[in-house]
Design a protein around this nucleic acid. Structure first.
Lengths: 239, 239
DNA sequence: GACTTGCTTTGATCCAGGTCAAGGGATGTT
DNA sequence: AACATCCCTTGACCTGGATCAAAGCAAGTC
């Protein structure tokens, strides 16, 4: 048997423990496979969906890396998140049947298309799928609470430390190193996400580097002292 | 018939066009009434739920006004939202079966308790309810995107203008004035939500007042020039 | 009606991070 | 190899909002 010829489906996806299939049994997975039957390739720099577009599907990232962002009329942009393999995009579109943000591939990517009406249908049949979809949305709400805390209360160093720790933790859950990462986004995009200017992002990287906490060379980052980062992010009360 | 004796239920709730019952027919409403059969009274200053508590139910506000907030170990607090009649609280608890924020009543309140497991059951039966629940979660995600834009990109005046416009618009949808409102929260809570200090909130109110855009007397606010507020919030590109 | 408590306003000063400016890679193109 | 395009870094300076401090106001309590 040709090793390339296995069925491309959720049931044998290496991300199934992270992505939509969590908690489904074999029979349910087969049914999910019927619903999630198409893939889309997105080249680096291209949009998976854009604000205003009609909402039809959720997307699970198979490979690649995305940012989602909203733009104001007067040209300001806010990056609302960075998404990697196994994560779900498009939840913003449900409420008004139109997407309210842009999803941009930061590297060549493949996404699994999940027609939302069919997902709703299936989740009426499978309580586990239903509950998992609710969890995915709840998780996004909780993540955004964390970002609000970051933006509303923290200083530049704390924000960047939180950002790095979060990224590396998610990468580690996908089998990558706990200490080395390649940033797929520019300093400006990091800054937009963290509510700071690209110069401040750059300076803060340099500061961490001088302090021996990380090594930075352009987009390659190596974390030398995770504890120090954690402490910056989550300082103890000073009493 | 005693006018006080009508059944207290979703089916004849004056908020049914804003709250959970949206889009359900009479028969479905009756079934919803069976699930949403208890109310809870919360006194001003008390918590409806707190971070860490086991998650069982969503809550719909019948009357009153709440804030939700998260706290860090080192004593910082971030208000993540203000909720009023017809709005749903508790979505944060779904993902980990535990609440991740506190819900505090800012005035005496009554909430309808919606046991989540039963709501999931019912929404497997009623596609309209299922879709509505998804919309509610999606709406919360989109709202938080807006807050991220606020916190990440906007200046103090823009934030406060956005805040006032948002509040008054939601109050208007509930039959209140388009131009007069009573703030149920302190300057500090507004500041926490908007990522600024209470002094800055106060100063910005004074500035708006001097400019003739609003009238402020403690917590009573009267909007004199909605257009001006809109323009501050959403300035045109200066070219 | 004096006192307490909690909230708000206003003034004076300070500083983290923004802005402006210049230069330095890295990568791709002709 | 020269050039163009992006992106990143670093320095110098500036400013919006934070911080510190004091006083004013409203509502409740004894």
């Amino acid at each position: 048997m040709n090793p390339e010829s296995f069925k491309v489906a959720c049931s044998n996806c290496n991300l199934r423990e992270l992505c939509m299939p969590v908690g489904l049994d074999a029979a349910q997975l087969d049914r999910l496979d019927e619903v999630v039957d198409t893939r889309r390739k997105i080249k680096r720099g291209e949009l998976l969906f854009r604000s205003g577009e009609t909402f039809n599907s959720l997307y699970a990232i198979k490979t690649g890396f995305f940012k989602t962002c909203i733009a104001t009329e007067d040209g300001r942009e806010q990056v609302t998140g960075f998404q990697m393999a196994g994560e779900i995009m498009g939840l913003d579109g449900i409420v008004n049947d139109h997407h309210s943000c842009n999803a941009v591939a930061l590297e060549d990517a493949v996404v699994c298309v999940m027609p939302f009406a069919k997902m709703e249908e299936l989740s009426r049949e499978f309580p586990a799928l239903q509950h998992h979809m609710h969890k995915i949305m709840s998780r996004e709400i909780v993540r955004e609470h964390g970002v609000m805390l970051l933006l509303g209360n923290m200083r530049a160093e704390e924000r960047l430390a939180a950002f790095l720790l979060n990224l590396v933790q998610r990468l580690h859950a996908r089998g990558f190193s706990k200490s080395e990462l390649i940033l797929r986004m520019t300093r400006e995009e990091i800054g937009s996400y963290l509510g700071m200017k690209l110069e401040t992002v750059s300076r803060t990287f340099s500061k961490f580097s001088e302090d021996g906490i990380i090594e930075v060379k352009q987009r390659d980052v190596r974390i030398l002292d995770t504890n120090a980062l954690t402490q910056i992010y989550n300082p103890q009360p000073c009493n």
